[in-house]
Write a protein that binds this DNA or RNA. Structure first.
Lengths: 241, 241
DNA sequence: GGCAAAATTTAGGCATGCCGAAATATTGGG
DNA sequence: CCCAATATTTCGGCATGCCTAAATTTTGCC
């Protein structure tokens, strides 16, 4: 008889969880599926390790993959990924709201804990926090049944001069950047207006804060890409409506 | 040059932590150091696995061991063990007090989490809980600097008829037993009086609860060994004082 | 004191995940 | 359209921690 295929229902090893989570994260904001080497870079492992593990993920029916082509999650894989994302974001919210962690301190701790906590633990923790819809960086928290509502948002970078909006998400990929935002008092839900760009590919000039006491600031590309805003309808568009 | 000995300052792998914790736990209530095979039983691994790992622990300077003799913690080993015990008991307290876990549900979850949390996490969690002195089963929680105060207590089993006392500790080794105690409304700090023993090695008869509305109960050996009491001064002893 | 039983250690293997190097497949520029 | 650069997979190895089976040492009983 054929070797029994292991159940994809269990949450898999810590490594399996990491792979699936990174595959998911890649497609959360782009529509192209991730390639083997991109996955290797993001996980900090060798390409050969990815090839091996992807074979295992296929066997677990968590991803679809033909040799030499990109890697895509199956529905079971997506389910597992969403479980991990929920765990991560609930934990981050808890660390900030209940244990007084700073913004930039929570990622690594959550990264470790997410592999260890039970679903019961996360669900009770979420309930205690009032079932938050987003984490301290504005990332949406999937519900226990695996549904997410990703709010409409664009990177500040992509907005033209004159546009205004509200910050709905601040990427936690770079802890230094988070500390910079803290020091500049840039927070979730702050209003923001794009003033313009310095000439010759220079910094983005933006105005932050409540319309009364706004501060003008130059942002580099990295910073401007890390801030996601819900854009207000543009004056020009209003004419069309 | 000789192979560099790995630093014993880091907390070691999850397995190392488990070994050290079990070695410590064995001597917490007995003074004989643990043997290789006892360690194997408590960890649920083969004797050969213990031999191997003990060699590693010696190399990490966490235990002292000569072949074929018992295993004892070094001061670094004891320090690590107390760290793990603190983590475990703070986590258990949190699960019960903040997440509404029942008594008998916390052990396994804490067992997993204790290997993953940071010291910062535990210390902030302990602070939030008001730096509790003991966990939900009455076990003392070591302080962050590695000191423990183990309260005086004897197993209920060992008390003679007529003695009274207060329950200060309920072993969490057996979840079924914890559920039994719950169902019988036996709780930490309850007063208890040993009435006597059923004849021919029978059950221990005890009276529980506030002196007004006490319930009498037969306890088997397992149950009587799991309950630790702070014994009141015995009437006979009072004469001597 | 010696010998069998019990405890312990050593030897050889397995699974997981990682690596670097070598082989193979795909791709794009000329 | 072909060949070199790039991407991907295969191969042999390493480390950790576990196993069973086979030595080896200790212990206790006669």
């Amino acid at each position: 008889m054929p070797p029994a295929r292991k159940s994809a229902l269990s949450s898999g090893s810590s490594s399996v969880q990491d792979y699936v989570k990174v595959i998911y994260a890649f497609t959360e904001w782009q529509d192209k599926p991730i390639t083997s080497s991109q996955l290797a870079v993001r996980l900090g492992v060798a390409n050969s390790s990815v090839s091996e593990m992807v074979r295992k993920l296929v066997d677990l029916q968590l991803v679809d993959h033909r040799p030499y082509s990109a890697i895509e999650l199956t529905s079971a894989g997506r389910r597992l990924a969403l479980t991990m994302v929920r765990r991560h974001r609930v934990l981050e919210t808890f660390l900030v709201q209940e244990l007084g962690y700073a913004w930039d301190e929570v990622h690594d701790e959550a990264e470790l804990l997410e592999h260890t906590v039970s679903d019961t633990f996360i669900n009770r923790m979420a309930a205690k926090l009032g079932d938050p819809q987003r984490d301290p960086h504005g990332d949406p928290i999937p519900s226990a049944d695996g549904t997410v509502h990703v709010p409409h948002a664009v990177q500040l970078e992509e907005l033209d001069g004159g546009h205004t909006g509200r910050i709905t998400r601040i990427s936690d990929a770079d802890a230094d950047l988070l500390r910079f935002f803290s020091s500049e008092q840039i927070r979730l839900d702050d209003r923001v207006e794009v003033v313009g760009r310095r000439p010759f590919g220079g910094a983005l000039v933006v105005r932050f804060g409540p319309s009364g006491s706004a501060r003008e600031l130059d942002l580099g590309d990295q910073a401007a890409a890390a801030l996601w805003v819900h854009s207000d309808p543009h004056p020009g568009c209003l004419l069309a409506s």
